[in-house]
């Protein structure tokens, strides 16, 4: 539903009122370089790569400028290209660029920009390499923080503040020493970070990257098994191994967001200690059994207990990992057996 019509490089574009020029362009499949923009977050306007010209008004940044009826946007002209090229070159000269060894290779916003600009070796060589050799924070069990690959787009800071409401990280220091830091520059595990990984998911580079860099062969759309919220999730799978998880942006329950468990807690799937069949204790040791055997045993023991001690002797513990509907059925079952003794793991 387009309410506003405007033009990008002569092309007629329809957009919703309140959209920014960049959002409208990207939605129509028109690429304007950008680094600090993320569709889920309030615009920041730091990287200046998305600079455009509005005819008759001069230069502005497209990620912050709302669309207006009839305006004519120019995405490149010699003046814009000059500043944009230099800005990109400065970031690249300041970037550790062993892309082949990088977790984000082929899925990196900085690569997008480099590709769009078209790097000219001769020009880059005029600049001094300014990459730093700062220590990597690997304290978190699920992700790395590599400040050497950070482009200071602030996306992680805004994500943690606006989406997760935690505010574990912020810009710190000044000049070339500026970096994203926890309070007092402690390792991330000693901060208020909840390891939700929302920032990792949005970081345009590998400055925040999940540990384990293998890419899955395919993705499976499913529901997170951990809790009753039932977040939509895509599991990345290779063979019978789960390698990654990402939120389903189309799912109305979570709009693509996940908590620490849903995003990172899947290594139990292939864990050797994982129970895959019921176990029945025989002569003091657990022995593998079929579901029929196990359920028959439960029924038998329930009956036995009820006959001997009455229905109040029975009780049930349900789980936060099942849905509300399942929990409802569970209490129904127990009440039909005649007991009100039902509890839930969340209270334990």
């Amino acid at each position: 539903m387009g309410e506003i019509t405007f033009f990008i490089d002569g092309l007629k574009i329809e957009a919703n009122e309140g959209d920014t020029i960049l959002r409208a362009a990207l939605e129509q499949g028109i690429y304007i370089p950008h680094l600090c923009y993320h569709p889920d977050l309030k615009p920041f306007g730091g990287c200046r790569l998305c600079t455009i010209e509005i005819e008759g008004r001069g230069l502005t940044i497209s990620c912050k400028t709302p669309v207006e009826e009839g305006v004519r946007v120019i995405t490149e002209n010699p003046q814009i290209n000059k500043a944009r090229r230099i800005a990109a070159e400065l970031i690249i000269a300041n970037h550790y660029s062993e892309c082949l060894q990088c977790a984000r290779n082929t899925d990196c916003r900085l690569q997008d920009i480099a590709t769009y600009i078209g790097i000219e070796e001769g020009r880059l060589q005029r600049l001094k390499r300014t990459v730093r050799d700062l220590p990597i924070d690997d304290s978190n069990p699920f992700f790395y923080r590599d400040p050497n690959k950070c482009v200071l787009c602030g996306i992680c800071v805004r994500t943690c503040e606006e989406i997760n409401g935690v505010g574990a990280i912020d810009f710190a220091f000044r000049g070339f020493a500026t970096k994203i830091s926890t309070l007092k520059d402690k390792p991330i595990t000693e901060s208020t970070c909840e390891s939700c990984g929302e920032c990792v998911d949005r970081c345009p580079t590998a400055a925040l990257a999940r540990k384990g860099s293998e890419r899955p062969a395919r993705e499976v759309k499913t529901i997170c098994p951990y809790c009753g919220a039932g977040c939509g999730i895509y599991l990345g799978v290779r063979g019978d191994r789960v390698l990654s998880a990402r939120g389903d942006r189309q799912n109305p329950v979570n709009n693509g967001q996940l908590c620490v468990k849903g995003r990172f807690g899947y290594d139990f799937v292939n864990h050797p200690d994982r129970l895959t069949t019921p176990l029945i204790k025989r002569n003091g040791t657990f022995v593998e059994a079929s579901w029929d055997e196990a359920l028959d045993l439960v029924v038998a023991k329930f009956k036995e207990a009820r006959e001997e001690y009455g229905p109040e002797a029975l009780g049930g513990l349900s789980s936060a990992r099942v849905t509300n509907e399942d929990n409802y059925l569970f209490q129904k079952l127990l009440r039909s057996l005649g007991t009100n003794s039902i509890d839930h793991c969340a209270r334990l």
Partner: peptide, 10 residues
Amino acid sequence: SCGQCSLCVL
């Protein structure tokens, strides 16, 4: 420099 514009800081 506060570090947010790459042109300024870098």
